[in-house]
Design a protein around this nucleic acid. Structure first.
Length: 473
RNA sequence: GUAGAUAUAGCUCAGCUGGUUAGAGCGUCGGAUUGUGAUUCCGAAGGUCGUGGGUUCGAGCCCCAUUAUUUACCCCA
């Protein structure tokens, strides 16, 4: 067998020590924030039954699911045993749709929200509601990789189910700010909108075309511009008149509150009907106003980062209330976070009427942003604090108790594992970013002293063990 | 699924109109220095030029196919 060039699957990555340290730094900020807001950790299996995953992400989503082949021989009946769901020639003739359910019954998780919904339903008897959980795990999508898009990537979700309170929405904004501030990002925009505002816009246009066509077209506004949206809507059966009315509504400007008022006036003028309205106003606008008020009452100080963006639509079909998205403004990168409220996510698993709201950070994209903006603190990288030099067998023996005492004092230390040239050992320390090297050759040992070298300055000092420990601890 | 780009040393990349033995920087290793890294100086190792075919007296370079990587579209974190 000839040696093969090793490789990893498309869209996956190895993370070396330095990268892991930086990723953990981001994870740490997110985890501490979630916990500070009262969310408890949850983990679910990498594999879910395919029946849990399919049909939750739309037709395209189903195609992006990684399916896992059943073990065992599903093509041929073994001698003397019965194979359940054997693939028949007829199935093969009928194509993938007939074959797939028989050869794959598990899939890799596609996001963290659906497994969470599945968990809530399975454990509804034991959970205390409202249930707040966070979850930091990788997810997989069989997408074409490109900038900021991977086939394996981490999501950091925080969701609360079992309450309609808009306080949760307001707290999502708070957590988003806290995390972004915590990792040093300053130029960002938290976009917020409401599915029912979009619904009202659809009605204001007179009910032409479909909601989905309208929303996906609106969502692209900042990318393809007004002309592009007009063209796309025309192709989907929207009249020029409707398109004009759309841009009149999308064009509302001003502060958060001013936009709310102007949209309300627009909806009234357009005669948006009562299906989408309540006695005292329009539900979507009302919700957004309440979220805004909560933030004010809390003493939120970063309204300049919060943007009521009427064009924000988001793809996932299960959102029903507020929707969120974060854009880092000075980096060319897709959204680093998104979320929203879903009134009936657990309905698919037989538990209707449970409302939830949540959001997710894409760590891999946050990482790419920090990298590009050079925002990683230098201190994140190193692990070992002190390298103990290894002169020879005698010195090695003598220095082992010192190694123990360094570690007992909480100083991350290592002894160079074999005696050898000091040049090599210093190079090792330098390459690994170890700040101190501790030396005790025959001279120092005779004097009962140590030599401690600070690599960044080149300074060397002769010290007692107590002094070394005091210096490094 | 659609379209483009790229593939040469461990890494980043040069390589002229197709012409002798394919180069540089960084990294690695050895030495200058048998008790000192980063810095300096000297030296060495390292290549089926992604793979397969074709054109040609001659191919890293041109043509075809194929694989991988990558960017954009769709969609999304």
């Amino acid at each position: 067998m000839s040696a093969q060039k090793p490789s990893i699957p498309q869209g996956t990555r190895d993370f070396g020590p330095a990268v892991v340290a930086r990723r953990n730094y981001i994870f740490g900020v997110i985890r501490r924030t979630f916990e500070k807001f009262g969310y408890a950790p949850l983990e679910t299996p990498t594999l879910e039954n395919l029946s849990v995953l399919t049909g939750k992400y739309g037709e395209e989503g189903d195609q992006l699911l990684f399916k896992v082949l059943n073990s065992g021989n599903f093509l041929k009946k073994q001698k003397g045993e019965v194979v359940k769901d054997e693939v028949t020639p007829d199935d093969l003739q009928a194509g993938p749709r007939a074959v797939l359910p028989k050869i794959a019954e598990k899939g890799l998780r596609y996001d963290l929200t659906v497994p969470f919904a599945r968990y809530v339903v399975m454990n509804r008897g034991t959970l205390t509601f409202p249930f707040k959980r966070y979850q930091i795990q990788p997810v997989w999508r069989a997408d074409r990789p490109q900038r900021g898009r991977y086939r394996e990537f981490y999501q950091c979700d925080a969701d609360v189910v079992g309450t309609d309170s808009l306080l949760c929405e307001a707290e999502i904004v708070l957590m988003m700010c806290e995390v972004l501030n915590g990792i040093g990002l300053t130029d960002f925009t938290i976009k917020i909108n409401h599915r029912r505002v979009l619904g009202a816009i659809y009605q204001a246009l007179g009910g032409e075309g479909t909601e989905m066509d309208l929303f996906t077209a609106i969502d692209k506004l900042d990318k393809i511009g007004r002309d592009g949206v007009e063209k796309e809507l025309a192709e989907r059966g929207f009249s020029p008149d409707a398109t004009d009315r759309l841009f009149a509504l999308l064009g509302v400007e001003g502060s958060f509150e001013e936009k709310l008022e102007r949209l309300l006036a627009g909806f009234v003028t357009a005669g948006v009907d009562a299906d989408n309205a309540t006695a005292d106003g329009y539900k979507g606008l009302q919700d957004l106003r309440r979220v805004y008020e909560y933030l004010q009452e809390f003493g939120f100080a970063q309204f300049d980062h919060l943007d009521f963006d009427v064009t924000l639509a988001r793809g996932l079909s299960y959102y029903t209330g507020c929707i969120f998205e974060i854009k880092i403004n000075n980096v060319n990168m897709g959204s680093v976070s998104g979320g929203g409220r879903y009134d009936n996510l657990t309905g698919a698993f037989g538990l209707p009427g449970v409302s939830g709201v949540g959001f997710s950070f894409g760590v891999d994209r946050l990482y790419d942003c920090l990298e590009e903006l050079n925002l990683f603190p230098a201190a994140v990288a190193t692990t070992t604090r002190c390298l103990v030099a290894n002169f020879d067998a005698d010195a090695e023996r003598a220095v082992l108790p010192v190694l123990r005492q360094l570690r007992e004092a909480g100083v991350a230390s290592e002894l160079y594992p074999e005696p050898g040239k000091l040049a090599r050992q210093f190079k090792y320390a330098d390459a690994k970013g170890i700040p101190f090297v501790l030396l005790q050759g025959s001279e120092e040992r005779a004097a009962g002293q140590f030599k401690l070298k600070t690599l960044s300055t080149g300074e060397e000092r002769v010290l007692s063990l107590e002094q070394v420990l005091a210096e490094l601890a």
